[in-house]
């Protein structure tokens, strides 16, 4: 696949309550494997996907949060969080599993505008 496009994955949903976050990660890994320019965005409840300390034994669903730490190994390094969403949920960067770039709404809007393909989950 020779064409390289800018793919953005917009995550707006919390983990475990629905499968979207997990299946979104699967697409992200494949897209990176196809050498595309990948960005991940966490908005609204999507920010909860990155919360440290997830322990899923009691709900018998696989804890997929370590995968966010592995993204770097797939050259997925552009992770963006909307400041407003993080603040509204009482979270700070220290609460997150991985280093992220925190953006304002204006910066996030501009970043979306420049993408070729936006997939939201």
């Amino acid at each position: 696949m020779s064409e390289v496009k800018k793919f953005m994955f917009v995550n707006r949903k919390a983990p475990y309550g629905t499968i979207y976050a997990l299946e979104a990660l699967e697409v992200v890994l494949i897209t990176a494997a196809f050498d595309q320019d990948v960005s991940l965005v966490f908005l609204d409840d999507g920010v909860f996907q990155l919360k440290k300390g997830q322990q899923t034994k009691g709900i018998e669903i696989k804890n997929f949060s370590p995968t966010y730490r592995a993204l770097e190994g797939y050259d997925v390094e552009k992770l963006y969080v909307l400041k407003e969403s993080m603040d509204a949920r009482g979270l700070s960067e220290d609460d997150l599993l991985v280093p992220v770039t925190v953006l304002t709404t204006a910066e996030m809007g501009a970043l979306m505008d420049e993408q070729d393909v936006v997939l939201s989950f």
């Binding site: 696949m1 064409e3 496009k5 494949i30 595309q36």
Partner: peptide, 8 residues
Amino acid sequence: GQLVEAGT
């Protein structure tokens, strides 16, 4: 990969 291809 077919989804990625649908994007590219």
